[in-house]
Design a protein around this nucleic acid. Structure first.
Lengths: 123, 123
DNA sequence: CGATTCTGCTTAGTGAACTTAGCGGCGCTC
DNA sequence: GAGCGCCGCTAAGTTCACTAAGCAGAATCG
């Protein structure tokens, strides 16, 4: 429910969860396949790291069985809206015409648009 | 729809969108309140940056009216599950008892758990 | 007692994201 | 055609997440 922690708060929280789970720093390192190094986790828990990266937080969430989204929020990372899949509106452009196209075709279209825009300069 | 782009692909994509929107690098810098520097955006578009941070991607998504989530996926950031709000299961621990507690109380509880765990060592 | 093996921790180093500052080119206008 | 402003770009510098390596203390066991 928390929205934002200081690094100290976040560290204390993580330490609490780890100890509750009965894991050592090296246990976590092992369970994350050496992705989260014990020394680094120690730094995080001591509040020395401002904003651990999403990848690290994800691994921690897995090991402790916490919500990845919640961890992201705690350290202050932007999190995509649950819903509100903000469609690329781009001011009335007929998107449905583009939605059908596959990856390469869309890219080609963008490049063509760039070409048009370039030409237009000599308007 | 794409799941993962190479830095080059991602850069080409962003460049296409920007030109389609008719914006210059400095326009974007201005519209993001100098959060996304023109020189840096240039580096991204040329594929020189491996994985721009969430904060930067968020700003870009806002300016171009793109889906932040989609940008995260393109560069390879982990994204929290739309649903599947993975509850902190922690092996049968009676979570509902904790859910009521406020922030401070939860922290105190974790610290108490740590204390218990510590004591237990002399089992 | 000494040796071993855990524990958390610290320090110095690396690398990549991001900044700063400025360059050269192009298209205006006078 | 000289000056001016905007364009994308780039090289060097800064910052900070993350690594590598090892140390001190406590528990364990011979």
């Amino acid at each position: 429910m928390t929205v934002q922690n200081t690094p100290e708060e976040f560290g204390a929280y993580l330490r609490g969860v780890r100890e509750l789970a009965g894991l050592t720093l090296r246990d976590v390192e092992q369970r994350t396949n050496q992705v989260v190094k014990n020394g680094y986790l120690s730094q995080i828990e001591k509040g020395l790291i401002g904003r651990p990266s999403p990848g690290i937080l994800y691994e921690i969430a897995q090991v402790y069985q916490l919500s990845y989204r919640d961890l992201l929020l705690r350290v202050g990372h932007r999190v995509p809206d649950e819903k509100a899949q903000e469609a690329p509106a781009l001011s009335g452009f007929p998107l449905h015409l583009i939605a059908d196209l596959d990856e390469e075709e869309q890219q080609a279209l963008l490049e063509y648009a760039a070409y048009l825009r370039h030409k237009k300069k000599g308007r």
